[in-house]
């Protein structure tokens, strides 16, 4: 692989567990930051979706964590790391429709089990590392290639 171009922009946000009222607004700030950096609209759109789904998972399922945004000339990366509880079967949570969302979250329109599939669909690579009792790290990479999207 060719050497990585050094990052030009890096920012992080703490995400509190169960705080649904604030949830979603890291995603909006990420969107704003990407637009102001001149990132291509198609990439901003994909990053927004990835960030929202990752952010919601931190809020709904984790004991808190952080989101790191790294923007390089060739890619946008989003890192979601949390303090637990971890995921026992990473292949299972990647499956469309798998969800452990409680009823109160389902009533609010969460829990379709399509969050991680949406993250995969909108990134070029989604890596998930998890250890039960420790926590989960997800890294989404979105390449800034010329994109002739809709």
């Amino acid at each position: 692989m060719s050497p990585r171009i050094p990052p030009v922009f890096r920012r992080y946000w703490e995400v509190a567990p169960k705080d649904l009222d604030r949830a979603g607004f890291v995603s909006i700030e990420v969107r704003r930051a990407l637009f102001s950096l001149g990132v291509e609209p198609e990439v901003v759109k994909r990053a927004g979706i990835v960030c929202f789904e990752g952010e919601m998972n931190l809020v709904l399922y984790s004991e808190g964590g952080r989101i790191v945004l790294v923007v390089s000339p060739d890619r946008v990366e989003l890192l979601f790391s949390d303090r637990g509880p971890g995921i026992a079967d990473v292949d299972l949570v990647r499956q469309p429709g798998y969800s452990t969302a409680p009823d109160w979250a389902r009533e609010l329109g969460f829990g379709s089990g399509l969050g991680i599939p949406n993250m995969e669909q909108n990134s070029d690579e989604l890596k998930i590392h998890s250890r039960v009792g420790e926590g989960t790290v997800m890294r989404a990479t979105i390449l800034r290639r010329k994109y002739d999207g809709r």
């Binding site: 649904l20 009222d21 949830a23 607004f25 995603s27 969107r31 927004g48 979706i49 929202f52 609010l108």
Partner: peptide
Amino acid sequence: THQKHLNVVAVAKLK
């Protein structure tokens, strides 16, 4: 939609 909570605003904005 029937959803009327804060996250709706975020989804609408992002999309």
